[in-house]
Design a protein around this nucleic acid. Sequence first.
DNA 1: CTCTTTGCCTAAAACCTTTAGGCGTGGGCA
DNA 2: TGCCCACGCCTAAAGGTTTTAGGCAAAGAG
Lengths: 203, 203
Amino acid sequence: MLTLAKRKDATPMTPRVGLTTERLVQAGATLADEVGFDRVTVSELARRFDVKVASLYSHVKNSHDLKTRIALLALEELADRAADALAGRAGKDALVALANVYRDYAREHPGRYAAAQFRLDPEAAAASAGVRHAKMTRALLRGYDLDEPDQTHAVRLLGSVFHGYVSIEMGGGFSHSAPDTEETWSRVLDALDTLLRSWPPAP
Amino acid sequence: MLTLAKRKDATPMTPRVGLTTERLVQAGATLADEVGFDRVTVSELARRFDVKVASLYSHVKNSHDLKTRIALLALEELADRAADALAGRAGKDALVALANVYRDYAREHPGRYAAAQFRLDPEAAAASAGVRHAKMTRALLRGYDLDEPDQTHAVRLLGSVFHGYVSIEMGGGFSHSAPDTEETWSRVLDALDTLLRSWPPAP
DNA sequence: CTCTTTGCCTAAAACCTTTAGGCGTGGGCA
DNA sequence: TGCCCACGCCTAAAGGTTTTAGGCAAAGAG
């Protein structure tokens, strides 16, 4: 739970709560992790800051703007983690590390992760950390021997697998079957490593 | 646009419109494809049937129920297409066919595809066509030489790639970069085929 | 021809979004 | 020290979605 300034008492005109776009986005991200990104609402946020709803509209254009900002935050956080994980690693070591960044982030921050999937309008997308992510995946691939355009293909494949796996797993899609997802995850990473090591030549 | 019964005239009490859960779900799916799954709303549906909102609640428990039903419809349609595509094919041929089912469906029916990703509660998930999908992917893998548990790992990998790729591509994630996604898609499928053909043994 | 069921309606409460305008409070400036 | 203005949160209000409760008329059964 968020613990924020309470001001329910009768004090006629109390000091300002100190709203900021920053704080709103942060609180929004926390809220997303608690109740799900789709339930992040301007009203709920106002409630948590113990402030009237309209007050938030000075700091955030509208609901969509709020969600966009949360998405950007999540992408940034993810990229930071990825950069950390990649530092000093190469080859399969780096592959596993990067893959786990996404998976762990999704587990620790499901709401933020969902936010990272939020459909951004082109301008926001361009200004997002999405570019950093692509760059880092490319960096990771330096440990393998791939030229263009295969490198781009590989970047996209890795992105697809990471995102696809994590999002299916989070959605419970792998639940009711036998081998635990932990084992599958490591075998999938093995397989990807093998694949990248011997990427099939164009026909 | 949906073309449905209009009854705006002054006829005191006109014949019933003929609402059914079926028709609502169908119209909901169409609506999803037109405006996006997240904008599918009981109100909008009522508007399209030219009927009062409350009338829908006899056919659908609530908004969540409606969305769940649309999701189930989409999963069913997808499974039907997959079954068609898989019939009479094996090996890489089958792999490509199945993969394209997902991709094409997402392109033709973005709203329905989004619906298929809707988080189902466990009961609904169990009753969904999700099982059929898993079975078909397993069937596809008969063309490759995989024993358990590797087969399950492979099923999950394929699911991840298909879903991940399609959903990133739909979200515009592959937009601003050079090689067109068509080429990547076919190279990714090549790669998967190669990988399945020589699945790395457990360590 | 009456009875019951079915199907859509009115009414109403609760909640979220968004805009417009108001008014203290605090920081800046003299 | 004191004045002023911008900032920060508020009230008010309109419009949309969700959901429940209860009503009335038409359609179909006996």
